[in-house]
């Protein structure tokens, strides 16, 4: 008992620190994942799913159509739900995301929106999220550069 009495200030400091840490950990608004996991998954496009593969899906999933508030999605998939990108992290949306069993499939007519949403959700700790992409590799260069073989370093505009 006397040991505890002697150490009471120390124990107080440690308990306060622990409480602060628990508050921080339970904050749903803080990102907890390592950034490099997102890069590892996205750089070879393994987070994309093509419409063909999507049709063959047998496991449960939920399509999330990320329109904007002015331009909501068309609900062409089933089961699906509309969540405007701006409201992705609202309480109601979070509840839907948390309670979904199986894969979350993000769809947006703009690849940019789905990409941003994917990283945000991934870094918040959601597993099993995919982006429905009409192209196998959206990052393909559709044009071929034609070099001008007469160009040299001396020319004026360099």
């Amino acid at each position: 008992m006397s040991l505890l009495k002697n150490l009471k200030i120390i124990i107080l400091v440690i308990v306060v620190l622990l409480i602060l840490i628990i508050i921080r950990i339970s904050d749903q608004n803080v990102f907890k994942e390592q950034v490099k996991t997102a890069v590892e998954v996205t750089w070879n496009n393994s987070n994309l799913i093509t419409p063909n593969k999507f049709r063959e899906l047998t496991t449960p999933y939920l399509v999330i159509e990320l329109g904007s508030e002015s331009n909501p999605g068309s609900l062409q998939f089933r089961p699906s739900i509309k969540i405007p990108f701006e409201k992705l992290l609202d309480k109601e949306s979070r509840e839907i995301l948390d309670n979904t069993k199986g894969a979350l499939i993000l769809y947006s007519d703009k690849m940019a929106t789905a990409s941003k949403a994917w990283i945000i959700l991934n870094q918040l700790g959601y597993k099993n999220i995919l982006i429905l992409s009409s192209e196998e590799n959206p990052e393909e260069l559709k044009y071929k550069f034609q070099p001008d073989t007469t160009a040299g370093l001396e020319q004026d505009s360099i």
């Binding site: 997102a38 990409s115 990283i119 959206p138 990052e139 393909e140």
Partner: peptide, 14 residues
């Protein structure tokens, strides 16, 4: 920038 918006969006948000 990348070839389209996708990679650039990833990098931007990271």
């Amino acid at each position: 920038y990348g070839n389209s918006d996708q990679t650039a969006c990833y990098a931007w948000i990271i």
